[in-house]
Amino acid sequence: MIDWIQIFSNAAQELISPTTAAYALAALGLAIHFGYTGLLNFGQAGFMALGAYGFAISTLTFGFPVWASVLVGIGASIVFALILGIPTLRLRADYLAIVTIAAAEILRLIFTTNTFDDVTGSASGLQGYKGGLAALNPIPPGTYGFGPFTYNAYDWWIRILGWTVVILAALFTWSIMRSPWGRVIKGIREDEDAVRALGKNVYSYKMQSLILGGAFGTLGGMIFIMPRAVVPANYQTSLTFFIYAILLLGGAATILGPIVGSMIFWVLLSFFSGFMARAVEAGWFPFMTQVQAGQLRFILVGIAIMLLVVFRPQGIFGNKKELSFVR
């Protein structure tokens, strides 16, 4: 028999998991890039990798405290955004797509190569950087919670921390997007030449957007590594595509969309994986192995991306009024 309670409780855990928070933050950054400014950043995985490695290397190699490690990660992502933006933000939109995807791969290859093994741990990655953060934990040791949401002090600490960052980032994004700055940014998405003709320095605004959204991705990358190790294989191009799926699900030009999109994405994915694994185990799908059942969810994500773009381009939270005008 299938243990439905287990499947549902695993899925429910994803609602507040640090991974969900990390993806929500990265998706919010992408919303600033793609949803609001119209920048095709396909290198969000690279920004996340910089957060993860920036934090871990600062802590492990240089022994920096937590706040300094966070700043190093953010600093690295700002430099990365400048390197990406300077050559491409003057060019057509698709050039940024190609350059960002290439740059993220360059980062991943550099983090993977044996050449810098001493610092990056090459393919097996890094761990043991969580001490500083755990030491800051105000929650006394013990196990807290109810039902599926029962965690130890560290697990609660990283969840609280992660979601606090998400909420702050969302409030910040909300406040800048309703300001004149947000108006210029949205204008650039619609037609950058028109905005230029009105006397706005479009290049500078695009750069600000790239840096800001990238920094969100970097923070997401830091939250992402709190419950696990830093492994370069996690920062493949498909990571960026998953974040796009979340963004499209929630609505690209919305604040709540990326956050709720991330929750829905992970709950559904966990539910589906759990169900398929148990169903195959129970012999419901005799033609399928466990491994194949595990791959089905990626096929599903791919199909979901296609269907969303074609049939509901504004996402769940997008403005219905917009739909009739989306090209």
Partner: peptide, 21 residues
């Protein structure tokens, strides 16, 4: 349907993911 180029590009990403797996 008149789907724009950038949505089309994202559709191709979804297709790539689905086909690959």
């Amino acid at each position: 349907r008149g789907v724009g180029l950038i949505p089309l590009m994202i559709v191709s990403i979804g297709l790539s993911l689905a086909l690959r797996y």
